[in-house]
Computed example of a mutant assay.
Amino acid sequence: MNKKPMDETWMTIPKMMEYISVSRKTAYKLIQDKKIPSYRISARKTLVKKEDIDKYIMKHRN
Rank of each mutant, 00 (worst) to 15 (best):
D7N: 05
D7L: 05
D7V: 03
E8G: 05
T9K: 07
T9R: 10
T9E: 12
T9F: 08
W10T: 01
M11C: 02
M11S: 01
M11L: 00
M11G: 01
M11Q: 00
M11E: 00
T12N: 04
T12S: 09
I13A: 02
I13H: 04
I13F: 07
P14F: 03
P14I: 02
K15A: 01
M16K: 01
M16C: 00
M16H: 01
M16Q: 00
E18Y: 06
Y19I: 01
Y19W: 03
I20M: 07
V22P: 00
S23K: 09
S23V: 14
S23P: 09
R24Q: 12
R24A: 04
K25G: 08
K25A: 10
K25V: 12
K25N: 13
K25Y: 12
T26I: 12
T26F: 12
A27T: 02
A27K: 00
Y28A: 04
K29M: 09
K29S: 15
K29A: 15
K29D: 13
K29I: 09
L30K: 11
L30T: 07
L30S: 07
I31Q: 03
D33C: 07
D33P: 01
D33E: 15
D33G: 04
K34G: 10
K34Y: 13
K35S: 12
K35L: 15
K35V: 05
I36C: 05
I36N: 03
I36H: 07
S38D: 06
S38K: 06
Y39H: 14
Y39C: 06
Y39F: 11
R40L: 07
R40G: 11
I41W: 05
I41C: 08
I41S: 09
I41N: 12
K45G: 03
T46C: 06
T46V: 13
T46H: 11
T46N: 10
L47Q: 01
V48N: 00
K49C: 06
K50L: 05
E51N: 12
E51I: 13
E51M: 10
D52F: 08
I53G: 02
D54Q: 14
D54I: 15
D54V: 14
K55M: 08
Y56L: 03
Y56R: 07
Y56D: 10
Y56E: 05
I57F: 13
M58Q: 14
M58C: 05
M58H: 13
K59W: 13
H60F: 14
H60A: 04
R61Y: 08
R61K: 15
R61G: 08
R61P: 05
R61S: 11
